[in-house]
Design a protein around this nucleic acid. Structure first.
Length: 416
RNA sequence: GUGGCUGUAGCUCAGUGGUAGAGCACUGGAUUGUGGCUCCGGGGGUCGCGGGUUCAAGCCCCGUCAGUCACCCCA
């Protein structure tokens, strides 16, 4: 075993497993493009300040999980821990808001957080996400949730639960925080150790604590939904109505809160219920962040987005038939014929066929075995007798039948 | 970051202080021009790493690294 190893929590994706990734990614692009999204690619490295200002200084991500370093000009840079901040930065930097009223972007790529690795959670991990700028909702909110469900079901991932909530806008969150604190403070001594710490820092998180003693207290806590303004309430009601109309199943979860500071109004999560997921069963998290663009120096622009962790999706992705990756595997009878075989392979490739060949000069048995495992539909045997007759022996690897085919009609025969 | 469990061949794992193993995978042959099935053979290991105890350590002890589970947090 080599002493050179990949960095902890950062993994290789080898060719043998990449087919599943391609399936995930292809289905994602197809799904989001059906909903009118276009891809954006932003840098992996951004100025540290971008994340501090957008995600929030007091969040765990910014406080202890970012890969931050200084470049040679003493600029503080950070490997992106999520996708939204970079998108917003690009949206502002290129004044997209002046060019079009609504922008629908998607992204797909690696993110970096220095957490303790576990199944479904790595230090370099892949997220796919969407962002919508310029539409205040609520119908686009419903579309986004519907999009996620539709994407997941196109992958065969159907054991899931959509949870939605509204955090309100303006000072709703502060007012709710105050009344929650008024309720929790007298009970502080009965809370778990973790929640006592959360109390002053982020009391909303006490609500989704897993400790049994906290859950009893959280169950009786004042509800966020009772603190919404009339407008926020209408926004949420319209979102629910839209989801009902779409037939998208969901559950209103008033205790759903999320770690990032920037969310307003609509908040949603999709939990996976099946597969190999352990505690990392949040497949998708998203929400509205109407205040962020203004806060980062842009015009007042409503925004909503979500992100999905692809490693987690993979954990509940059902196995599927993988299509043949090769049309033909070329087999050489004896080493002297290798150049002839290579020429035939090349000619077939020029016709658009996917062709592999074993040009090492090994036994036919070994070549046939490779052909069998390469998932090629046909093997083309190049032998002395066939060459002399201007033919190739074409073997159907699934049926086990074989026939001699004129070289001139090989492409036509294979294209059938 | 906290606590628990596990590290033996590419993979899944057996090995209870005394010569390093199996199945699968890879590879050669049985069949000197034909895959999958069968049979026979072959290669592949500093037993995660470092230290300690012992005549002797894969096995016991300590440390460390990695993986994993729960918590924390989150996609």
């Amino acid at each position: 075993m080599s002493k050179l190893r990949s960095v902890k929590g950062m993994n290789d994706l080898l060719p043998s497993e990449i087919g599943r990734w391609h399936r995930l990614e292809r289905a994602f692009r197809e799904a989001v493009e059906r909903y009118g999204f276009a891809e954006v690619r932003t840098p992996i490295v951004e100025p540290t300040a971008l994340f501090v200002r957008s995600i929030g200084e007091a969040t765990d991500i910014v406080e202890k999980e970012m890969y931050t370093f200084e470049d040679k000009a003493d600029k503080s840079l950070t490997l992106r821990p999520e996708g939204t901040a970079g998108c917003v930065r690009a949206y502002l930097e290129h004044s997209i808001g002046n060019v079009e009223p609504v922008s629908k972007w998607y992204y797909l790529g690696p993110m970096y957080r220095r957490e303790r690795p576990a199944k479904g959670r790595y230090r370099q991990f892949y997220q796919a996400g969407c962002e919508v700028y310029g539409d205040p909702g609520p119908y686009v909110d419903a579309e986004l949730i519907d999009l996620v469900v539709s994407y997941l079901s196109s992958l065969g991932i159907t054991e899931l639960e959509v949870q939605i909530n509204s955090l309100g806008s303006g000072d709703t969150r502060e007012r709710y925080r105050d009344s929650l604190l008024a309720y929790l403070r007298p009970l502080a001594s009965k809370l778990s150790e973790d929640s006592q710490r959360r109390l002053e820092r982020n009391p909303l998180r006490v609500l989704d604590s897993k400790a049994p003693e906290d859950q009893a207290i959280a169950a009786e806590a004042p509800s966020l939904l009772d603190h919404l303004s009339e407008d926020d309430r209408a926004h949420f009601a319209d979102l629910c109505a839209a989801l009902d109309a779409f037939g998208t199943p969901y559950r209103v979860e008033p205790k759903l809160v999320r770690g990032l500071d920037y969310y307003t109004r609509t908040l949603f999560e999709v939990k996976g219920l099946g597969g190999d997921l352990g505690a990392q069963n949040t497949l998708c998290g998203g929400g509205r962040y109407d205040g962020m663009i203004r806060e980062l120096g842009g015009a007042d622009t409503p925004a909503i987005g979500f992100a999905m962790g692809l490693e987690r999706l993979l954990l509940c992705l059902p196995d599927a038939e993988t299509a043949d990756t090769l049309d033909v595997f070329v087999i050489v009878q004896k080493p002297e014929l290798r150049l002839e075989a290579a020429k035939i392979a090349r000619a077939l490739r020029a016709e658009g066929l996917a062709v592999d060949a074993d040009l090492r000069g090994t036994s036919m048995k070994s070549q046939l075995r490779r052909a069998d495992r390469s998932r090629a539909r046909f093997a083309a045997v190049i032998g002395e007798a066939e060459l002399a007759a201007g033919k190739v022996q074409l073997k159907d690897l699934r049926a086990g039948t074989q026939e001699d085919v004129e070289r001139s009609s090989l492409v036509a025969r294979l294209s059938r």
